[in-house]
């Protein structure tokens, strides 16, 4: 059922406010031309080169916005390799039935059966990897 994708947890996540960072250390934008989702992510880095803070702008569907909100919570402390690995793990969760890489992503498990929506969830994770040079 398509309606299963839109539980209260997803809707609450999608309602989170996001804002661009002033003078970020890195930024990246990716879009999904098929559906029009577009995610811009700003990153401020700590001295060790890991993510200290993220901001950004999400023009996208509810699933994309919710995924971006989960990522914003998870991103601090991640390095470039971690971000690339996380994007791969989220892809494996959606496409290969792997376990969610962390509990908050369990809300997206129902998306597995909707191949056309995998890209909506993956987009913010790909953008973080891109912003960090991966």
């Amino acid at each position: 059922m398509s309606a299963d994708l839109y539980g209260q947890a997803i809707k609450d996540l999608a309602a989170a406010e996001t804002a661009r960072l002033d003078s970020p250390d890195a930024s990246a934008t990716l879009d999904n031309p098929l559906c029009g989702d577009k995610v811009t992510l700003d990153v401020r880095l700590a001295d060790d080169g890991r993510v200290a803070e993220t901001g950004g702008a999400v023009k996208g569907c509810l699933l994309c916005k919710a995924a971006a909100a989960v990522l914003a919570e998870r991103a601090p402390g991640l390095g470039a390799d971690d971000a690339a690995a996380l994007a791969a793990d989220v892809a494996a969760m959606l496409k290969q039935g792997a376990e969610p890489p962390f509990p908050a992503l369990a809300a997206f498990v129902p998306v597995r059966g909707h191949k056309s929506r995998h890209g909506c969830v993956l987009l913010p994770f790909k953008v973080l990897a891109k912003a960090l040079g991966r």
Binding site: S2, A3, L5, Y6, C35, G36, D37, G60, C61, L62, L63, H114, S116, R117, C120
Partner: peptide
């Protein structure tokens, strides 16, 4: 409501 969400529902 995003058009993609509406179309999917």
């Amino acid at each position: 409501c995003h058009p993609h969400d509406l179309s999917h529902l």
